[in-house]
Structures are given as C-alpha cells and as structure tokens.
Design a protein around this nucleic acid. Structure first.
Lengths: 113, 113
DNA sequence: GTCTGATACATAAGATTCTTATGTATATTT
DNA sequence: AAATATACATAAGAATCTTATGTATCAGAC
C-alpha cells in the first residue's frame, strides 16, 4: 500500500491552505480524513504535525477558529481570515510552481531510468 | 523572479538521485548549475544543503566518488553505485507518486481559489 | 596589477518541520 | 467489555534546510 510517509516536508501548510480555500471551514480531524480520501490512502497526515501547524497558522493570523460541540465533543473549526486568503493565494501559486518544477526535473530523459 | 527558496524540503535527495541516474557522473557544483538551468533559475540548491547530502548518500553506499583535478582545482565526481541504482529506482517512484498526489490535491475545484 | 565574480569544495550554528510516542475523553461497534 | 473511531493536544528527538563563513584557484575587467 506504499504509504507515502516521510515525504511531506514543507507541503503540509500548503495542503491546509488549499483545503480551507476550497471548503471555508474544516476541523483538524476532518482534514486528515479528507487528504486520505483524496489520495486514496496514499498520503497520511500525522496529527502530531497537523495540530501544531494549525496553531501556528492561527498565531500568524492566517486562520481563525470557532469551537463547536458535537456529540458532547469539542470541534475546532478553522477558516481562512481575510489576510489568510491573500497569503494562501501567493503561497499556493509558488508551491504549484515548485511542484511543476519538480515534475520537470523528474521527467527528463525518462528513457534512461 | 520569484525564486523558490524555502521549498525544497525532502526533495533534494530525489533531485540528486534523478540527475545521477541520467548523467552517470556529476560533481556538486555542476548539480547546482544543472538545476538552475533546468528550471530557468526558479530553483536554487544551496551548497550548504547539497554537500552534506552528497556526503550522506556516499556514507549510505548509494554514491561513489572519484576526484579529478581540473585547472589545478579538485572536483569530486559522484556516481550511483549498483545498490544506489536500485534504491534510486524505488525512491524516485515513490517521490513521483507523491508529487502526483500533490497536484491532485492542489488542483481540486480550482474554480474557487 | 588588483578587484570582482565564477568555480569548487567544506563546515557549523541555528531554525523549521516532521515522526513517534503519549495523553485525555467520548461515542460506536463487536 | 473491549476495540475502534472520533477529536483534541503536547513533547522529545530526528531530519533537513538556511545562513554564514571559510579556503583556494582562475578569468576577465579596469
């Protein structure tokens, strides 16, 4: 099943920003499920990486939080703030370009490999 | 010119393995130039990251070195070893799949962003 | 003839980001 | 009753990168 662990360096923030750009509010656990679903189980975010990153983005003012209680359990919904939307736009642009550059490099002379 | 610094986490090793898979021997400085050239200056490897990574891959037995002297200056040519070729195949496969998953996630609902 | 920039290597301190391990607590399924 | 899923959280340690610095040679500018 080839789970791509160990391969997320630097992309976690971009994944979060992208999903919140599309969905307008999501909670942490939901994000982990969503990524698994979107990638057919190939990519797994660990909670140990996710939650601190959400806190960091909140501290930076890119995300806002609202807590709701579902089934007697708290959920923290995150949304992009106004400045978060701007920043997300920039960062995703350059991350997309980075990913494109990676494919460029990886797909040269594919005859050889 | 939007230089994508800060975005290379985890991909450096894969870039090295890919280039050495294609070119059979390269030296460090040449690798930095090659990446700049291939990506039209968008991606720059820093030497502070590159050289330690080459040393590490050598220590792991994936690369072999031969020193040549050009213009009275030493060059260390790196090549994939036998086991390096095997490993490179595996790692590049899963890195390619990771990059593909990234594009998958980044290009959903692009209408919204 | 000296200075700048390119070539070519190297290392070290510090920052960032991830993994792994744990912990708490409730709800659902077996 | 126990295991799994839901839902958050933090902390120690590892891995990987940035920035800064260092050495040394060579080519071209001025």
């Amino acid at each position: 099943m080839a789970q791509n662990t160990q391969l997320l360096k630097g992309s976690l923030i971009n994944i979060i920003l992208k999903l919140l750009g599309d969905n307008d509010k999501m909670y942490g656990y939901e994000i982990t499920k969503k990524v698994k679903e979107l990638t057919n189980g190939e990519l797994s975010l660990t909670e140990g990486a996710l939650y601190p990153t959400l806190h960091k983005l909140e501290a930076e003012g890119l995300l806002s939080v609202s807590v709701e209680h579902i089934d007697n359990r708290p959920r923290k919904y995150y949304s992009l703030t106004k400045s978060g939307k701007k920043e997300a736009g920039c960062r995703l642009e350059s991350f997309k370009s980075f990913v494109a550059q990676m494919q460029l490099v990886l797909n040269l002379n594919s005859a050889i490999k």
